[in-house]
Design a protein around this nucleic acid. Structure first.
Lengths: 296, 296
DNA sequence: TTCATATCTTTGTCCTGGACAAATTAGAAT
DNA sequence: ATTCTAATTTGTCCAGGACAAAGATATGAA
């Protein structure tokens, strides 16, 4: 298990095969071994450096300047971003991150539960879950926490949110909202935050989970007589693809059904698509809802 | 939106780019349009036929005999599998499938809830959820239900199971089990069924959700001082890759930590891997647990 | 200075056509 | 029937070229 074929590297690092090959050609890294058929075999250390590179690219670095740099130099690049612009307006967050980092699972669960009860579902999501998951994402970029810790956190929050939403019982008021993500976007925390924000307002939220093909979203929206389709894009999702998917979805959807889009991938962008409501923050959701209810 | 580039088709159909191109070369299908740069643009009808092909391949058909066949002939191939060998030993299942198919969301939720209360969590999973999700999978293969309906069902069951498990409260008894899936396997219903079966026995189940890289699974298992790592493989996951991943994971894991594997991908297979406990059925889980507790 | 516009560079993705081993099927022999 | 062998099918990989979109840099106007 000291070397992986190219397909495994693509899966583990998220870097497409084509890109791996072209990097090798251009930057002389990675330089995999070859098996007896002449196929690439990436030693585990190179795969680890590739994971590091992916993080640095997400941070804004450019391939030309980092891919061929030695691994030690790269590690140094991660730190400086450190605690950039102490944006943590909420003192409750840092201790929670520590719990995640130290695998204190039971305590994390208890702490989250406590906050949820204290704040109520909507404020819990807006004031705690949203900034916390952003902070976790940044910590992951920085390399402060690992994949497993991030997964653990996501699962805990998911359990809590799903239980809370479930305990609200079914809603009957309009609008009916169909929520999902497009293929390639597997993160659903954003959707759950949306649902947790809207469900207490009596909205009928129905989630399809992650990665529904565009055609099927449109079909389901028609069949289920939904008023609104809402999709979310995490920070990891390439903005360009997000706009492409939104355009496709808008065209596939009848004019009578609204399309709402949100998530970190879209936030800073000015680009707009006709008849797509882009929602920058969680609290803008409630505005959008009020607007819809006034109009319809 | 009448034609998609090759990357979008790969994402929507799950058929790799390389395969799409080689099919075109060999079977003269798909035959996409070309944009002004000479790049492939797949008309929506061809993409739909590709989705159909994917289902037929999963059913056991071979590309050479179906890829170049006309779309109408393919539709016919789906039916014969029809209601093969009325295996539904449980009369409660068919009505539930109808609810899924007809988008009767609220009723589905209520019906599931009712069954769960009536049977108790463990029997609910073993006698209802397991055969139901198998039936849903078969109906999807057959084309009786769409992607959206399947997602809807999965979400509902997930909500219910997560809430139920959550309401059990934390366990303190041994063993400690770390559960997850490997990269490429995104289905987690299997994991939830395992958790729902074991949690009432006082086992400490911790889930990392889907797609944790092998190295991170091993790391997390060590860091968290787990006794057992459990991974699941859905029917859609290629058996060959499953065994490969299991071998890698077994090697990455200390000998003191047991590795349990289960799921439809492994069921019929005779192949075994040393020191990996393959679990064929849900009730075999409880045997494995009893065995572990006796030994440790 | 700051902002907008034009030009150059970088970078990811797509292309063709060839190759090969693993998986499957067909055929032969026990 | 079952096991073994040969032929065929099929997915994935490779090289190396191409190009447009995104990013960086330079130039000019307010």
């Amino acid at each position: 298990m000291t070397a992986l074929p190219i397909a495994a590297v693509e899966r583990d690092t998220g870097i497409p095969k084509d890109t791996l090959r072209v990097w090798e050609r251009r930057y002389a890294f990675p330089l995999p071994l070859r098996d007896d058929k002449g196929e690439r075999l990436y030693p585990i250390e190179q795969v680890e450096k590739l994971r590091l590179l992916r993080r640095l690219l997400d941070q804004g670095h450019r391939p030309g300047s980092i891919v061929s740099a030695p691994a030690e130099a790269l590690a140094a690049l991660l730190e400086p971003t450190g605690h950039m612009g102490g944006e943590s307006s909420n003192a409750a967050i840092d201790p929670l991150i520590d719990l995640v980092r130290m695998h204190r699972n039971a305590e994390l669960r208890a702490a989250l539960q406590q906050h949820a009860v204290k704040l109520g579902l909507q404020r819990f999501v807006a004031e705690l879950v949203a900034p916390l998951s952003q902070a976790i994402g940044e910590a992951w970029l920085r390399g402060d926490i690992g994949v497993a810790e991030e997964h653990l956190f996501t699962e805990q929050v998911q359990n809590l949110l799903r239980s809370s939403i479930n305990s609200l019982g079914p809603s009957a008021r309009s609008p009916r909202i169909l929520m999902t993500t497009v293929p390639g976007e597997e993160h659903i925390l954003g959707l759950l935050m949306v649902e947790a924000t809207l469900a207490p307002e009596g909205v009928q939220c129905i989630s399809l989970g992650a990665q529904t093909p565009v055609a099927d979203i449109a079909q389901a929206a028609r069949d289920g007589q939904f008023d609104i389709v809402a999709v979310s894009f995490s920070a990891a999702f390439p903005a360009r693809q997000a706009f492409l998917a939104l355009e496709q979805l808008r065209n596939a959807l009848p004019v009578g059904i609204s399309l709402w889009a949100g998530g970190a991938a879209l936030n800073g962008k000015r680009k707009r698509i006709d008849n797509v409501r882009q929602i920058d923050r969680l609290d803008a959701l409630l505005d959008a809802l009020a607007e819809w209810r006034q109009t319809n």
